[in-house]
Design a protein around this nucleic acid. Sequence first.
DNA 1: CAAAGTAGTGGCTTTTGTCCACTAATTAAT
DNA 2: ATTAATTAGTGGACAAAAGCCACTACTTTG
Lengths: 149, 149
Amino acid sequence: MNNKQIETIRHFNRKYTQQLGILQKNVFNSEISWAEARILMDVGYMKNPTPMKIAINLDLDKSYVSRVINKLNNLKYIEKKDTKKDKRTKLLYLTNTGKQVVEQLNINSDKQIQLIIDNLSNEEQESFYQSINTLNQLLEKGGINHVEN
Amino acid sequence: MNNKQIETIRHFNRKYTQQLGILQKNVFNSEISWAEARILMDVGYMKNPTPMKIAINLDLDKSYVSRVINKLNNLKYIEKKDTKKDKRTKLLYLTNTGKQVVEQLNINSDKQIQLIIDNLSNEEQESFYQSINTLNQLLEKGGINHVEN
DNA sequence: CAAAGTAGTGGCTTTTGTCCACTAATTAAT
DNA sequence: ATTAATTAGTGGACAAAAGCCACTACTTTG
């Protein structure tokens, strides 16, 4: 991999995060902010989510995560349950309301994605998807910061 | 483009921003924060950068950008020059120091990219690059929020 | 069992940004 | 051409997002 190629990747990173940043502002609702939405969605996606695992996964401070989780808990979006194995940790669950909110966030997110690809032809859309798919697989292998079970 | 495909893209967005978020924390130096670095780099990348264009490009409030630019100006990273055409706007330039800082930020950024692709084989790296390259081109066409000259 | 480490929490601070009002300059409308 | 409406940049005040540190309760290691 030469410098020119690295530079292309850097360019993509800049451009794509910028675009996502703009889109994400339209994703979350008035109840919760983007960071809070990210954490909520992570509770939905993770296998056995605990505050600590989420903090590591999203690279956020654990005290910040703790506060956000309390807020989400007050909103009745998630529940905290003590574990028997380790009395320090708490397992997190989405409530039914929480699941609905996550679902809505995903719908909003998908709409924003559509905004980008709607400008592309069918062939280009397919090409877009294939590239993303490839990157997903490569990230799965090469990516950093895997948080397991 | 079906739902399954959209979902794959959403998954990528989540995963990739997460990875980038982690990496970016290792990019900026002690003098300036990440948001400040973003603005500084934008001054370097844009054609005829003005505070307003940067605010639009990064989707930031203009008063915030104004303050950051003043800080970067105090650090002697950038210069503000009045334009003759429109006396309201100020054109921004990197100083030599500023160019060095941007260069260093890019180097740091590249190192972080290397961290990801180092885990991949040569073929996979090539594949990674090709996908990124395709996405760059498609974003150029389909993307939103183009800020021109 | 003592020592070292870990999960979660709260107080406090910094970073990041928003909102508003204002000035000076530019552009549009009459 | 003069007035009216917009626009770029700035500063004050404030709010939201996130980080740092110290602490408690619990667990793991030796």
